[in-house]
């Protein structure tokens, strides 16, 4: 157990050692490259969200960083160590919330937390954990009787039990109801206030926008873009979609100069029925980054 806790660097310096540094990460399954040269940096104290479609390699990447899966090529340093060689002291500094629940069915929530506390050098108290994830009322229930959302809460509690410096969360809120998700977000904000670095994967863009300092979009085994959520896909965001009805059918044009499009339209007609002028949201940007929506060709009007 190291006692030298690296303080989160003031924003913008970037000179401290990153919590996670990945260069050219490659992982193949039966000749197919799931990860194909992934580069990733997570700074100390930040919350980084990995976004990407199913099968993009998010879970594989996070498992390699956790040290439970081997890589085929590339350099990986997590908290300054290679996860595939790291030992007990390193594992105690890292928290893991994987997609599986990772707990037996017959024990109660409280018994499960008490049991896993025994492996950590400085475990959080079971009562604190139950309160933090909102499982006090289910403390005596067997794990096998919990709902899907309650199981995710237990998984989160087990992940943060050892007071990790770095927390990995693989789709932590899948199956949680909106109240539980907000409670989870509060928990993560509290951990971050204590200086915990968080790396999470999620399908929920609002979650990424809510929690993450930076978002990385994974597609085709690589990181295709990294930016703060509000700046993600800056070039794409400048494109405005102008949409209107023409002869009963909806037409739309994507443009960086919506005013010009409107002028052209108004030149031929006095009224523009069903007009809407929209800027892309995070979801639109994300879908276009991972190539899930076809781009309508510009100039359809002219």
């Amino acid at each position: 157990m190291t006692t030298t806790q690296v303080a989160p660097a003031p924003p913008g310096t970037g000179t401290d050692r990153p919590a996670v540094a990945v260069r050219g990460l490659v992982k193949r399954y039966g000749g197919r490259a799931v990860l194909d040269g992934l580069d990733l940096d997570v700074r100390r104290g930040e919350c980084f969200a990995l976004l990407g479609p199913n099968g993009a390699g998010k879970t594989t990447a996070i498992e390699i960083l956790e040290g439970v899966r081997r890589r085929d090529a590339g350099e990986v340093l997590v908290l300054g160590e290679d996860p595939s060689l790291a030992g007990r002291g390193w594992r105690d500094r890292v928290g893991v919330v994987s997609q599986g629940e990772g707990a037996g069915q017959a024990l109660s929530v409280r018994e499960t937390l008490d049991h896993f506390a025994r492996y950590h050098a400085r475990a959080r108290s079971t009562e604190d954990l139950l309160a933090a994830v909102g499982l006090q009322e289910s403390a005596g229930s067997r794990v096998g009787r919990l709902s899907g959302g309650q199981r995710r809460r237990l998984a989160v509690a087990l992940g943060v039990q050892g007071r990790p410096e770095l927390l990995f969360l693989d789709e932590p809120t899948t199956g949680m109801d909106p109240v539980a998700r907000r409670q989870f977000w509060e928990l993560i904000r509290g951990l971050r206030a204590d200086g915990t670095t968080v790396l999470l994967t999620t399908h929920y863009l609002d979650e990424a926008a809510e929690l993450a300092d930076r978002v990385g979009v994974v597609a085709g085994g690589r990181l295709v873009e990294v930016a703060p959520p509000e700046e993600l896909g800056a070039a794409l965001r400048r494109e405005t979609t102008v949409s209107w009805l023409e002869g009963g059918a909806r037409r739309s044009v994507r443009t960086q100069a919506p005013a010009a499009v409107l002028r052209d339209l108004l030149a031929v007609q006095a009224e523009i029925p069903g007009l809407s002028v929209t800027r892309p949201g995070l979801e639109d940007v994300y879908l276009r980054l991972v190539g899930a929506t076809p781009t309508t060709s510009e100039g359809a009007l002219r």
Binding site: V96, S98, E101, G102, G104, F116, Y119, A121, G162
Partner: peptide, 18 residues
């Protein structure tokens, strides 16, 4: 088999234990 299927084996492998 049950421990592996429920992700318990993976949890153990990520914990600070021998």
């Amino acid at each position: 088999v049950t421990d592996t299927a429920r992700g318990i084996t993976d949890r153990f492998r990520s914990l600070p234990m021998a």
